[in-house]
Design a protein around this nucleic acid. Structure first.
Length: 525
DNA sequence: GGATCCGTTGTAGCT
DNA sequence: AAGCTACAACGGATC
């Protein structure tokens, strides 16, 4: 009996999944193994590359995919832990050569590309081996390999450059619409699992394991990694939730989409619920592949076609074009995640102070604005984009002078929408070491609004108090710089600065001036 | 080849 | 209270 394997890598979904669709339509394939692999090289040896919120999101996503496979197709998701190549070798062996085809998606990360290549190479050798097919990029708007290889491609550094790269792909009749491959539908039916459960292999080597999503979840839970979050997360993992959010925030919200301007969604426009993002909140679903970026592009485009709308870079499409730009760079620039060997990264002699890193990560810098957002990140795995700008500027060239890679690692571990290409790009940008248009003297003020904050409860004061309950009774006037409040006010507010909440870790004005000077000097060397 | 322009989203201070 | 202006002053692209 002819069996096919569909390996879900960066697409934890049924919608717009060309590999899955192709397999389902292949008449010669009688049984299908839908698998997901937990690769220690990605997740760490005991999932330690993932923060708790991120682990929870992943588990929910896997359980949802499993549930969808069960309810629609009487199939299910099989989870393996270990090196993917070893797992495929074992699977093919155990199947008695009944596996004819392995399909999956292209991955642009160095590790993913190396893996794809190793698997292709391995199964090329024997004629009895299964065919291996990696579908073209479905995680981006364009095919990265094609775009990077196209004539005249140059590393894009601005939105203008991106437009140039795609200049031949814009709709001629309607200016400004990038033509992208249409998303493909969910398969109507799917071949069942093979009758013989050979896939439940447990080879002698303990480095490979098979599990169902439920037993995986139970194991993580038993290890204490699946605790109930302090605050209910607005994000539940999985395609079901992704499609519901897409409908709520995009498809069913034409005005929101057509008037979307990223800078306007920050601080001034916070929703009443401090846990619900003011943007679409779809990024975690894009990074795990619960949602297709092309589906999002298309839904946005439908609204844009009907009436006046905002334009890139501020519009929703603009945000997706930036994503594309960063993905392209991550593919075309070697050592994208490093300063050494990265042609786009300037070398700066960053400091190395563990206490500063700790204070930043734990939300104990004494800057409530920064601390609130870092605590939000830890508790929920999410932070507004401009908040990310503020805290990363603060950690690097702004105030603390720590290496961008250390901040990058914290984000990578904790963010639900962690994405290797984008996370590195944002840190390169915000720390000022990449040649993006970022005048180096432009700093984000960690105490915005300090002068104009009136004696009323502002939205951002509410936000800070939500995440820093120590400051609950502080008047908004001192909310950004509580150490400036008179002693009597501090004791009245039941929060003595230096005892109940830290004093500022640095003097923001002197450190900013000093860092600006050092940065300028560093650039000259 | 020198001048000029511009860059996803700054800040402070004024009205 | 949103919107203006002055400020800071890089570096790559463009003409």
């Amino acid at each position: 009996m002819s069996t096919g394997v569909v390996w879900f890598r960066k697409c934890l979904r049924l919608d717009d999944n060309p590999a899955l669709l192709e397999l389902s339509r292949d008449q010669s394939i009688r049984a299908i193994l839908p698998i997901y692999i937990l690769d220690p090289q990605v997740i760490g040896n005991s999932l330690d590359n993932y923060g708790k919120a991120r682990i929870r999101f992943l588990i929910e996503s896997l359980q949802d995919l499993d549930a969808r496979l069960k309810s629609r197709f009487q199939s299910e998701l099989l989870i393996y832990q270990g090196d993917p190549l070893e797992i495929f070798k074992e699977l093919v062996g155990a199947s008695g050569s009944s596996i004819d085809l392995i399909v999956s998606e292209y991955c642009s990360e160095p590790h993913g590309r190396k893996l794809s290549q190793a698997i292709e190479m391995h199964f090329q050798r024997k004629s009895s081996s299964p065919k291996v097919r990696f579908h073209k990029a479905v995680h981006t708007l364009s095919d990265l390999e094609d775009t990077v290889a196209s004539a005249g491609f140059k590393n894009p550094k601005s939105m203008k450059d991106v437009r140039k790269i795609f200049s031949d792909r814009f709709d001629s009749d309607k200016e400004g619409f990038l033509k992208i491959p249409s998303p493909v539908p969910i398969p109507r039916k799917l071949q069942p699992l093979p009758e013989k459960p050979f896939y439940q292999i447990l080879p002698d080597s303990s480095s490979i394991r098979f599990q169902s999503p439920t037993s995986f979840r139970d194991e993580i839970s038993n290890r204490g990694l699946l605790t109930t979050p302090i605050h209910p997360s607005p994000f539940k993992g999985g395609e079901t939730e992704a499609l519901a959010r897409l409908k709520r925030k995009v498809t069913g919200a034409p005005d929101f989409v057509n008037s979307f301007r990223k800078p306007k969604t920050f601080s001034t426009n916070q929703p009443a619920d401090p846990l619900e993002p003011s943007t679409t909140g779809l990024s975690p679903y894009l990074s795990t592949g619960c949602l297709s970026v092309r589906r999002l592009w298309e839904e946005t485009q439908k609204h844009n076609r009907t009436c006046e709308h905002t334009q890139p870079p501020e519009s929703l499409h603009g945000q997706l074009l930036f994503r594309e730009m960063f993905y392209l760079l991550s593919r075309s620039v070697d050592h994208w995640d490093n300063d050494v060997g990265n042609s786009m990264c300037k070398q700066i002699d960053w400091g190395d102070e563990e206490e500063k890193m700790q204070a930043w990560e734990k939300g104990l810098t004494g800057f409530p604005y920064i601390d609130a957002m870092m605590r939000q990140l830890d508790a929920t795995g999410w932070m507004h984009h401009l908040g990310r700008h503020a805290v990363s500027c603060f950690l690097t060239r702004g105030q603390l002078w720590q290496h961008w890679k250390k901040g990058r690692d914290v984000f990578e571990r904790k963010l639900l929408d962690s994405d290797w290409a984008l996370n590195n790009a944002n840190w390169l940008w915000l720390s000022g070491v990449a040649p993006f248009s970022m005048p180096y003297f432009r700093l984000y003020n960690p105490c915005p609004d300090s002068k104009s904050s009136l004696n009323v409860e502002t939205k951002s004061a509410q936000f800070i108090k939500f995440w820093i309950p120590e400051l609950e009774n502080f008047p908004p006037k001192y909310i950004y710089e509580p150490h400036l409040a008179p002693d009597s006010l501090q004791s009245n507010s039941k929060c003595i600065i230096g005892r109940d909440y830290p004093n500022p870790i640095v003097d923001r004005k002197t450190s900013a001036a000093q860092n600006l000077k050092t940065f300028k000097l560093g650039l000259k060397c």
